[in-house]
């Protein structure tokens, strides 16, 4: 049997992933995250009398802190596995990936463990974030003059 024919055989036995259900859960959870974020921005800007953009920074810090803390408590991975992109795409996913990597490699010590592995999953996000920021910054500079 060649590999094309074998692939057909495998596809026949492959269970269907529930994409619509996953997308719906991610949509709802992601939406709830958005509502929580907006609520925090409004609350911070009213409470401390600061601008919306300053309040947004505090909102991000709050969500990152909560995601890190819940990961450390050991139940956030179950939430992420359930909500999938609903919690991975928001800033909580980034915080979760860094905390989980940090926790995993602490046994190997602060340098060869945590230090060199904490960006194991998040490194790609940072790298391509910087690359795309630079690319689009250059495009904007060249076309719109800054």
């Amino acid at each position: 049997m060649n590999s094309e024919k074998y692939q057909e055989l495998i596809d026949k036995h492959k269970p269907k992933e529930r994409r619509a259900k996953n997308a719906l859960i991610a949509f709802i959870v992601g939406g709830i995250m958005g509502i929580i974020g907006q609520f925090l921005i409004d609350a911070y800007s009213n409470l401390f009398s600061i601008s919306n953009s300053d309040a947004a920074v505090f909102m991000i810090m709050t969500l990152v802190f909560i995601a890190c803390l819940f990961t450390a408590f050991g139940f956030f991975d179950n939430w992420v596995a359930f909500a999938k992109c609903g919690l991975i795409i928001p800033i909580t996913g980034f915080a979760h990936s860094m905390t989980s990597s940090g926790m995993e490699y602490r046994k190997e010590g602060p340098i060869y463990g945590v230090g060199s592995n904490v960006f194991k999953l998040a490194g790609s996000v940072i790298f391509y974030g910087v690359v795309s920021a630079w690319t689009f910054g250059m495009i904007r500079l060249l076309i719109m003059g800054g």
Binding site: T71, A81, K84, H96, S100, L121
Partner: peptide, 13 residues
């Protein structure tokens, strides 16, 4: 795979 506390979704296979 991933760090143990990372909640990566996995397919049923």
């Amino acid at each position: 795979r991933n760090p143990t506390e990372y909640g990566a979704p996995r397919p049923s296979t």
